[in-house]
Design a binder for these strands. Sequence first.
DNA 1: TTTCGCGCAATGTGATCACAATTGACGCGG
DNA 2: CCGCGTCAATTGTGATCACATTGCGCGAAA
Lengths: 232, 232
Amino acid sequence: MEKAPRKTQDAPVPAMHDRVYAALRDALITGRIPPGRGVSLRSLAAELGVSPMPVRDAVRRLVAERALTINPDNKRLSAPSLTADRLEQLTLARGWIEPELAARAAPKADTDLIRALEAADAGIDAALAVGDVDRYMAANHAFHFLIYRRSGAEVLLSLADSLWLQIGPFMRVVFGRMGTTGLDVDHHSQAIAALRDRDAAAAARAIAADLAIGMEAMRAAVEQTGQEPPHD
Amino acid sequence: MEKAPRKTQDAPVPAMHDRVYAALRDALITGRIPPGRGVSLRSLAAELGVSPMPVRDAVRRLVAERALTINPDNKRLSAPSLTADRLEQLTLARGWIEPELAARAAPKADTDLIRALEAADAGIDAALAVGDVDRYMAANHAFHFLIYRRSGAEVLLSLADSLWLQIGPFMRVVFGRMGTTGLDVDHHSQAIAALRDRDAAAAARAIAADLAIGMEAMRAAVEQTGQEPPHD
DNA sequence: TTTCGCGCAATGTGATCACAATTGACGCGG
DNA sequence: CCGCGTCAATTGTGATCACATTGCGCGAAA
């Protein structure tokens, strides 16, 4: 016997604070916690049906990843506000890191990865067709990180992860402002092709182009939003 | 009375978990917690004379910043090991971000900044002269982040912060292997001059050159270290 | 002397309580 | 009707306790 048969399943139940983290992360990315909104440990805990303890852990992590901000006077928590300045920096950083990750993933691509990417891309198209924002964002995230994870570059990967977490709320604004039109320009197919060919440079180009489209859409949306007062 | 005169100073006593964070951060950067060494919440708490609670918070933050790692099976904490792979990624990321920060800081430079930089640079030289590693690293960190903070680019700045936190332990290895020789090539003066001239491109070049020197020294040191078994 | 097994110590995690600071609302006085 | 002070509720923070799991060491058996 190798170890001791773990009942029937092998998955060791994720810790509570990890589930809370995942929940908050999802809530932030999908915009269920709108930018600028203040949150509190106890209210989140009550909402999730747990004690404030694991929420504290999850929140610390999200603050460190800049997915949440903490008022230095108040010590009160809030979702970061969307500013053109932040978006510009995020765009720049993504433009460095993500093509690099794609380039590193290219030599390691295999048929399993290609198949998974095609499935994810199909999911994206399906979501776009019916205008399902949540599914689109989930599938798009899955597509990109299927590639990035393949790079094996843990340090850069974690940077990309943090950047996506900060970008998430912006995407919601895009859809709120202009729907999903214009996002179907398919650099994803080019990325898949490049990976199939193990062509690092082409993969990097495809990802860079894909980012450029999305980030430009966000920039336009934020510029438009910034002129209005906060809507509540 | 405008508010209520806060005794004499204005600094509202940093929270315990922030002090613990600072302490751990310093311990990691200066190598007092050697790479690969396991740590525990309770032992750290006892060592710092506080309850495990603020240590948990600080550790969560450091884990999120990748300055500490957590074994997914054990759930046990340890300082990340130094690998050539990690160093390569850190070098790449620093090479993107830090020159950019310097470039953004250049237009905003003023005489106060220049003076502070000259003081920090003098501190570096003094530390190098007497071979004081801790002081050198502290002064070098201060020098760079005096510049970077001036950029006003919060997002990029936090990325740079995380990268330095991960680089810290490597630097200790450098000094342990080869002392401080070869690090006195003075790109810092060039950086100061560039900032005085508000020359963004020159500032970026100076910082990039400075990084290249240091990172190459680390690469050589790690390569040398990697061939030996862990020394305890 | 070596090896296996049992039990204790230590670990991370989560809950609950206590406390100081801040917020927000209610009510009183103008 | 408006302004302001007071008080209660809510906030983040830290400590302490309880618990399941893991690691390690001591001791017994061959």
